[in-house]
Design a protein around this nucleic acid. Structure first.
Lengths: 329, 329
DNA sequence: CGTTTTCATGAAATCGATTTCAGAAAACAG
DNA sequence: CTGTTTTCTGAAATCGATTTCATGAAAACG
């Protein structure tokens, strides 16, 4: 593969001038510019990107840490991030953490090795102090998941309001025994959702029942298990608030299989509004999260961060959540 | 950020020795190795990855070209690729082509700029000669999509057999008016599927009807439209063979909405066996494609390619397809 | 017309690592 | 005890670009 020196020789000019043409610097005469371009074509030249990165100290690459690619919510989030990245000539290094602390640290170190210009976190596995330490090495943007601090920009939804809305909806449908399904680790997002659920119960004077909290629930199969477990209870819940549409779908499918009617016997409400939510029968009532939009904003803020154009109100961007009522409630 | 020179100074040794410790070269005395490690810790040193890549001419990065991230089939494919990549200390540069020729070329050029060590193609947008020209610059592996050549390794399924199996199944259920939905561009994969469909018809003496071929059909909404269009036909098909579970789901949902019974009035068969296939009611009969396994194999072959350990039978790996009969037929 | 800007180019330094080469010290063999 | 091989280390070259600095020519200015 030809190098910049080869091109310079071919064009009868210096490496500096070739470099100027590559980076279209304004003060190059049309004549020389043409010579360089011809030489580049003749030699089929492409600049070595590692050399460019090393010298310029810019990688035009953003690391995106996501738990799992196959979760549609994150796929859409990534789609949003990618859209803005592509428009601005940035590349994405997609890093799956699989909800693992070590992996998260490993990927954060890409900032230290200058492999990426910045990192977008869509989930948080380590405690905040650990992560905060990395802000010295490059911009970090939080999206979807968040933390109670103001050190790095965040793009988020009001999760408390989301679960509050959903729970109120269930209560207004007459339910008083409402189960709530969540993941394992109590992240800020999880805490807020939990708080919204509790707030609704409290407002309507419904006692909080710890037996109605299902933990470590992530996917469709987990949802099915939740429903089966609940039926084995002495005093089972009549409504379920799931942490994702996958889980909600699992609950609905299993309920139907067990001969229960939805929403007659059991009401279910999901989170996300993924395509699956309108496919399952009955279609899911759900809290819509604008995944792609979160991605757009996060990447926009990241670019501003890199170009030091961050404004105060970029630090905490809120996007609206929306209750979508279908037929599962 | 500290450099290798700082570490060398701190440890009272040369840069070469530090480098040897980083790359754990065997001939370094325990004493010096320890000194270097201490110095690295003390300075919180991480090697600059661009410098490493430039000097070693290895990026440990593979470019993966996929049409769209939000299509679950490709998400699972990517998941498979990522699994093997992670296990072998490779990173993935995920590149969405959005079925665009220019973008595909753009990403292939990463090979020329030595930004990636190799490229995995999961779809093909340009003609084969164009792509073949890039094999000079680094290994290319074809996965899922393929071409009738033997220049680069391929990991694929017998698509002809897949659609043949599916069509035969529909015929055996008594259908003779069978529609077939496909995308726009006639790739080899699309051609083979089409051939399998035709082959089944021919074997059972059913005439091929061009009106039953629906083109440019990709997602759920397209599927719904197909069903509506078909109902407007004078002599509508009684069965549909869809190119993906998304499309099949759209057909099923719309059929139910239009008051048709599935599979009573209309039978539908999908492709992929995505999660959605078992969620929709009635659950889809489909041709299961082992997406993750394709990803595993593709990345394994890529690594072999890079390490020049490719064997003749790695050049064309076939994985089995499977007809899964559920309730939509 | 002399002086200051602006434009255009090249030589050389630089980014931060790895690798080659050469030589010293230690281990081993005869 | 000498000669050979193996182990260990450092100086310097190298990977392939960009950037700084210097310089001369051309244009603009008063």
């Amino acid at each position: 593969m030809a190098t910049i020196a080869d091109v310079a020789k071919e064009a009868g000019l210096s490496r500096a001038t070739v470099s100027r043409v590559i980076n279209n610097y304004q003060y190059v005469s049309d004549e020389k510019r043409f010579l360089v371009q011809e030489a580049m074509k003749a030699l089929n030249y492409f600049p070595n990107s590692s050399a460019q990165k090393l010298r310029s100290q810019r990688t035009q690459t953003i690391g995106v840490l996501i738990p799992v690619l196959t979760n549609p919510f994150f796929a859409y989030l990534l789609e949003g991030i990618d859209r803005i990245a592509t428009d601005n000539a940035y590349q994405l290094l997609v890093c799956q953490t699989k909800y693992d602390q070590q992996k998260e640290i490993h990927f954060l170190n890409y900032l230290k090795s200058k492999q990426v210009d910045g990192i977008i976190l869509t989930s948080i596995e380590n405690n905040w102090e650990t992560i905060a330490a990395y802000t010295t090495y490059g911009p970090i943007v939080l999206c979807n998941e968040y933390s109670e601090q103001t050190l790095v920009p965040m793009v988020r939804l009001n999760q408390l309001e989301g679960s509050y809305l959903g729970t109120c909806h269930l209560i207004r449908q007459g339910h008083r025994k409402i189960a709530y399904c969540r993941g394992g680790y109590m992240s800020q997002l999880t805490k807020d959702r939990h708080a919204g659920y509790k707030k609704a119960l409290t407002e309507f004077g419904i006692p909080y029942n710890n037996d109605f909290i299902f933990k470590n629930v992530y996917d469709l199969e987990d949802g099915k298990k939740v429903l089966r477990d609940s039926l084995a209870m002495e005093n089972p819940p009549t409504a379920f608030f799931a942490g994702s549409d996958q889980v909600a779908t699992g609950i609905v499918k299993e309920a139907m299989k067990q001969g229960k009617s939805v929403p007659g016997d059991i009401a279910v409400i999901g989170f996300d509004d993924q395509p699956i939510a309108s496919v399952v029968e009955p279609a899911l009532t759900t809290i819509k999260q604008p995944a792609e939009e979160i991605g757009y904003k996060a990447m926009e803020v990241m670019i501003k961060s890199i170009e030091s154009e961050l404004e105060p109100n970029d630090m905490d961007i809120h996007l609206p959540l929306q209750l979508i009522v279908r037929h599962s409630t």
